[in-house]
């Protein structure tokens, strides 16, 4: 009986849960931009345009998935762009030295997570701001790139070229690359981990309230370190995919990529203070960026810098949206 008085504490609201609003806004945005494209350019309606968006942004998607983990805990990882470049660079250099591709793959996929692990330790154990630690990581990884070589190293390895050129398509001639499949796999695994494992739920809990998570007995330190390791791993996978894509390792590739990645995650509806967001949203965020880029390429009169301006504007809009939802929260 008296329980009724307690349940009235819940305020009236439509059925749409608030945390889904940003993701849905992103979905609407994606459809609108795509719609604009289709209405303006005949070629846009070709399904291959969509596939190309995936092909061009597969590595970005993988990295953004890693970043989603970090941002969900309320952290940030500025090192991703550099780690992507470092992974590509290390692979290229090792392949040039004649190491077998399998071994190269293993080594390249270990470096990123190792750096992520170290950064996570510095953040957790020494209580230094993620921003600064990952900034150091960014410098470090970029430094390693140029330490290896000042110039771009081409990749001629058979495995790499196969992966680069392989096309998985339908009879109509539409296709995607291996990278897209890898990216999809990463997305699925990540979504599953976040939704169905304790680690995933701990990530959300820490982002919601780290202090509470600690008092609820959750392994806060371990989770935090793991999140940066995951981000490092995703960056490493992204780096491999990028090296498939470009068939080279270049010291200055993916400079500033962390900004695109962060923007994609935020546009995908994740809250930068942590605790709210979905991998699916991040996928949408990456697609929005990709479609806008395609749109601007299609339109001869608009120049590439409009991408940045539009991304900035979208960032602002989504942060404001989150802020408005947040205000209604309290």
């Amino acid at each position: 009986m008296s329980s009724t008085s307690l349940t009235t504490g819940r305020t009236w609201r439509p059925h749409l849960p608030r945390r889904h609003v940003p993701v849905l806004a992103t979905l609407v945005l994606l459809l609108v931009t795509y719609g604009i494209g289709v209405s303006q350019y005949r070629a846009f309606s070709n399904i291959q345009v969509v596939f190309n968006v995936f092909i061009d942004n597969g590595f970005l998607l993988v990295v953004a998935v890693g970043m989603t983990f970090v941002i969900l805990t309320g952290g940030i990882d500025l090192s991703v762009g550099s780690v992507v470049a470092m992974t590509a660079m290390v692979s290229a250099a090792l392949l040039q030295d004649g190491l077998p591709p399998a071994l190269v793959l293993v080594i390249a996929l270990l470096i990123g997570p190792a750096l992520g692990f170290l950064m996570g330790c510095a953040i957790h154990v020494f209580d230094i701001q993620p921003f600064i630690v990952t900034l150091a990581g960014m410098f470090f990884a970029r430094g390693i790139c140029t330490f290896i070589s000042d110039a771009s190293i081409p990749i001629t390895d058979g495995f790499w070229t196969t992966m680069s050129q392989a096309r998985i398509g339908n009879p109509a001639g539409n296709f995607v690359s291996i990278s897209v499949l890898v990216a999809f796999a990463v997305v699925l695994v990540a979504a599953y981990v976040l939704a169905y494992t304790r680690f995933g739920r701990n990530v959300y809990a820490i982002g919601g309230n780290a202090q509470s998570a600690l008092l609820m007995g959750l392994p806060v330190g371990r989770t935090r370190i793991a999140v940066y390791t995951v981000s490092g791993l995703c960056s490493a996978v992204g780096g491999i995919l990028l090296s498939f894509y470009t068939l080279s390792g270049a010291p200055l590739i993916a400079v500033g990529m962390e900004l695109d990645v962060i923007a994609a995650v935020v546009i995908g509806g994740a809250v930068l203070t942590g605790g709210s967001g979905y991998v699916f949203g991040t996928v949408l965020g990456v697609l929005v960026l990709g479609v806008i880029q395609t749109l601007i390429t299609f339109d001869g009169s608009l120049n590439s810098w409009w991408t940045k301006i539009v991304i900035g504007g979208l960032l602002f809009a989504f942060i404001l949206l989150q802020r408005l939802i947040g205000i209604r929260f309290t």
């Binding site: 945390r19 304790r198 959300y204 809990a205 982002g207 309230n209 609820m216 959750l218």
Partner: peptide, 15 residues
């Protein structure tokens, strides 16, 4: 000391 961003059920059982 709970996480308000999680569901009621999760707050009871997380961990």
């Amino acid at each position: 000391n709970l996480c308000t961003n999680l569901s009621v059920a999760e707050n009871i059982f997380i961990g």
